[in-house]
């Protein structure tokens, strides 16, 4: 892949649809509030359970398929309504969602993430939730994940995309 296209992915993966508006820092607390609900759901619905992820990949339980399937359905209806009704943000800004562009990384990277997901029983969100739940050994997993992301950044020009 040529360098120009890599640069394109670059601009598409960071700071997409960053709001043009400037707000005081404490405005970010609204995202913390959404995160709190997410964190509670993660624990209460056992989404952070390594056992639940193993059951999912062994087709031994419907639970995780139900969670992800329902979330996609609710998310899709919401996005449809936002576009259809031209819903604005609470600050009156037009809502914009950037399109995802295909590259081979979605296959290669996707498979590698799938390996990691089945090993650790966690995607990135649950990793952070384990720390909140007081299971500090998972800090090792997070540190490795940061190292993995950094290694990708270091080699990305040489990887097939």
């Amino acid at each position: 892949m040529n360098n120009e296209k890599v640069q394109n992915i670059d601009s598409n993966t960071a700071c997409v649809n960053a709001s043009e508006q400037q707000h005081p820092g404490w405005y970010n607390l609204k995202y913390a509030a959404v995160g709190i609900i997410f964190g509670i759901v993660f624990v209460k619905a056992e989404i952070i359970s390594w056992f639940r992820i193993q059951e999912m990949f062994r087709l031994q339980s419907f639970h995780m398929f139900g969670v992800i399937g329902t979330a996609v359905a609710v998310g899709a209806i919401s996005v449809f309504l936002i576009k259809k009704l031209n819903v604005k943000t609470i600050h009156g800004e037009k809502i914009v969602i950037a399109d995802k562009e295909f590259n081979k990384g979605q296959i290669y990277g996707g498979l590698l993430f799938g390996f990691g997901w089945a090993l650790t029983g966690a995607c990135p969100g649950p990793l952070f939730a384990h720390i909140g739940a007081g299971f500090y050994a998972v800090l090792v997993v997070i540190a490795s994940a940061v190292a993995g992301t950094w290694t990708y950044g270091y080699f990305r020009d040489k990887l097939p995309h």
């Binding site: 290669y108 993430f113 650790t120 290694t151």
Partner: peptide, 15 residues
């Protein structure tokens, strides 16, 4: 360690 590394490397590679 390897599992965590794959999560970090794979998610970013996949975007």
């Amino acid at each position: 360690v390897i599992g965590g590394f794959l999560v970090g490397f794979g998610t970013r590679y996949a975007g």
